[in-house]
């Protein structure tokens, strides 16, 4: 029997991997950076919580619905994003985070500052899911999303995304429909964030708008940036590292934002491809250690 503590860490690791992948799809493949991904997590969490609490919908329906709602807002952002370039898109997404939190705090419908409590534990075969089962569900979803992203990346959609990231004008001339693929990246990314939000809500069983503020968006970005944008490997390993490491270095907890901030600065300045990215000092070092190119698989796209 694994203690509950490890279930909690594993569940949070899974949620963070999903969030990190969600940034990875958007920023790494399509080259669009979001500084407000906590907003989409909030939308997913609230959608799922309200469906199950207010409308008594089953969790198994609420979670896809949460992904759908989040993806619809993502679609809207994608349309807006077509008019904005790089850094202005980034501050727009940041603004979106503040707006979503503002709406959740002030609109009477969402429980205001108290948030939503008594979120039901998901049912499986007529009984409440245990912690272990929930962790297993999270792991299964991570595996599913990783597989889906991997498939997308290998398909012509991934090719189009990389084209947009590397040289938008050239991609357009080659006949890639920029608008369609950009919006598609937003939809996929925000749907993943919505799933993560739903998992978060049904794990903690209690959510408030303050859980999804701008600092969380920064943390999500740090996960992906530290690991390295652009590959599945980077965001996944970054999320695992930054979720598990603080558990063993307890003294870091009090300096968490300081650490995240400095990590962002240092990684962006000295290793913009991330710790596990293409030709980073870590992957190069591992290559040298074990020798031979073929040992390092799944290199950065």
């Amino acid at each position: 029997m694994i203690p509950a503590y490890y279930h909690t860490i594993m569940t949070f690791t899974c949620i963070n991997i999903l969030l990190s992948l969600s940034i990875g799809v958007l920023a790494g493949y399509a080259g669009q950076v979001s500084l407000g991904h906590a907003a989409f997590m909030a939308i997913g969490a609230y959608a799922s919580a309200m469906l199950t609490v207010t409308f008594k919908v089953s969790f198994w329906l609420a979670m896809p619905a949460a992904a759908l709602v989040s993806a619809m807002v993502g679609l809207l952002l994608g349309v807006i994003a077509l008019r904005l370039k790089e850094d202005f898109l980034a501050i727009t997404t940041m603004g979106l985070n503040f707006i979503v939190i503002g709406v959740l705090l002030y609109a009477p419908y969402f429980g205001k500052a108290l948030g939503i409590g008594d979120i039901p534990v998901p049912m499986l075969f007529g009984e409440e899911m245990g912690r272990g089962m929930y962790t297993a569900l999270c792991l299964a979803l991570v595996a599913g999303v990783v597989a889906a992203v991997w498939w997308l990346q290998r398909s012509w959609i991934g090719l189009a995304w990389r084209g947009i990231r590397e040289a938008q004008d050239v991609a357009q001339v080659m006949g890639v429909n920029i608008a369609k693929f950009k919006i598609f990246a937003f939809v996929i990314s925000t749907a993943i964030a919505g799933i993560a939000g739903s998992l978060y809500a049904h794990f903690l069983l209690f959510i408030t708008p303050y859980d999804f503020g701008f600092p969380l968006s920064i943390q999500i970005l740090t996960l992906a940036v530290l690991g390295g944008l652009g590959a599945i490997r980077g965001p996944v390993l970054g999320a695992i590292l930054l979720t598990i490491l603080p558990e063993y270095l307890r003294f870091i907890q009090d300096y968490r934002m300081l650490t995240y901030g400095l990590l962002l600065v240092l990684v962006m300045m000295y290793q913009p491809q991330g710790l596990f990215g293409h030709k980073s000092f870590l992957t190069e070092g591992l290559k040298r250690l074990f020798g031979g190119e073929e040992k390092i698989r799944g290199r950065a796209a």
């Binding site: 790089e86 920064i218 970005l221 934002m257 901030g261 990590l263 962002l264 600065v265």
Partner: peptide, 25 residues
Amino acid sequence: RRVQDEKPLIPLIVGIGMFTAMGDA
């Protein structure tokens, strides 16, 4: 100065990271 000629996102993220760290400090 180190990142001023990079893509505009890099100085933006560096600045946000620095601001986050400063706030916590």
